[in-house]
Amino acid sequence: MYFRLTQVMLMFFILTPLGVSAKEQRKGILNATPSKCVALNQGRTCYADVVFEISAPQAGDYCLRESESKRILQCWANTASFAYTLSFGSAESVSYELISKAQSDTLAVTTIEVNWVHKVRAKKRRWRLF
């Protein structure tokens, strides 16, 4: 019993940090702040200055691009950490990905979510007066 408990604890201490660090590393490669943009009405363009902070595991050539359109926002050469400020404007959520030029591989993906307060636009409005 003592042996099995030790084994379980050992596996816990070995596996857990690995799992956490892998997750954190993945999360930490590409961070966007803010990650949510709120508009007043559904369908309206939401604006935000979004800062992407990139911490690649090693120095290299990287590009940040829109996931769907594949439009390149910016590329960096022979570096591991860098930041990019995007003047975001979209009526829908948009995903961005970090790619390695050498491997043509997607290293990380992040999404700027667009939400809204009102489902419908208050087009007709009566202004109450006396």
Binding site: H118, K119, V120, R121, A122, K123, K124, R125
Partner: peptide, 17 residues
């Protein structure tokens, strides 16, 4: 632009609080 279109969906009932 302000608009004379209905400000709500075309469904029968809408509410907002």
């Amino acid at each position: 632009r302000a608009d004379a279109e209905p400000w709500y969906d075309e469904d029968d009932f809408d509410w907002q609080l």
